[in-house]
């Protein structure tokens, strides 16, 4: 708790363009830094300011977006009349917020279980990953499905999780030649990251399997992403028959 407080106390506020502020807690990816990010985001959610449009949590900080045309002379933020300048007003507000954060007992993080059909047509690089580490494919599956993962942030593409916790012994460099189209739901490894592609995109990840779960759900306006920052993640192995059955059901249960 104290180390989280220290991160919050030492936050740096930095302008990114004239319509956003980066609240930075560190420069390194770390679970304590992640807790500070979560605590600050929760506080912002409770205490947004007028003119704030949204915020984005990342590995080491939170970027707060605002509309500079709406800050001037309204609501909580009274900018310095000599400057007519919204950045200072936003920074003053955020600093006040940072100094008063009560770190509530954190809610038990959600745990989301992701079914994966490993190998075969769904995981065309599984054998290559196994070979790279001098293991069998089954050992790679066992290690991948046995990991305890944390969703640090959502970004890059709709519903794409940045996941930490891949066992170091199966970390694998990206493919030398990226694929032009990686199917939606593909589960892959890239360096020390593992993750799931929510959309069909080009990419260089090593594909070890595929999930029938939809990570991006545009029809759900409240929660368009299956995962959110702070979730715990588990992968578990399913057979191809189970994969097809889940896919045909269309309505895979939510966590």
């Amino acid at each position: 708790m104290d180390d989280i407080r220290e991160k919050l106390r030492n936050a740096k506020l930095l302008p990114v363009g004239e319509a956003a502020v980066l609240v930075s807690f560190d420069t390194k990816i770390d679970p304590v830094v992640h807790q500070a990010v979560r605590a600050f985001a929760a506080c912002l959610e409770q205490h947004p300011f007028k003119g704030m449009t949204e915020y984005v949590e990342a590995f080491t900080g939170v970027t707060v977006f605002y509309d500079p045309a709406k800050i001037c002379g309204e609501g909580l933020l009274q900018p310095d009349p000599e400057q007519a300048y919204s950045y200072q007003a936003v920074v003053r507000y955020l600093q006040k917020l940072l100094s008063g954060i009560e770190i509530a007992a954190q809610d038990e993080p959600r745990c989301v279980r992701i079914p994966v059909c490993y190998g075969g047509a769904y995981g065309p690089d599984l054998e290559a990953v196994a070979e790279y580490h001098g293991m069998t494919a089954q050992e790679v599956i066992h290690l991948h499905a046995g990991g305890a993962y944390l969703v640090y942030m959502i970004g890059f593409a709709p519903g794409f999780p940045y996941v930490g916790g891949l066992p170091a012994c199966i970390a694998t460099p990206r493919r030398k030649s990226p694929r032009l189209a990686i199917p939606k739901g593909s589960v892959g490894i890239a360096g020390s990251q593992t993750g799931v592609y929510p959309l069909e995109t080009p990419g260089g990840w090593q594909l070890i399997g595929r999930t029938p779960l939809a990570l991006f759900r545009p029809e759900d306006q409240e929660n368009p992403s299956l995962l959110r920052a702070g979730d715990r993640l588990e992968f578990y192995e399913i057979t191809q028959q189970e994969y097809e059955a889940m896919e045909n059901e269309g309505s895979v249960p939510r966590p």
Binding site: V16, G17, F59
Partner: peptide, 12 residues
């Protein structure tokens, strides 16, 4: 060059 992924934005 040790940029960790963070929010990007229109105009960056």
């Amino acid at each position: 060059h040790e940029s960790v992924s963070e929010a990007s934005g229109w105009g960056a």
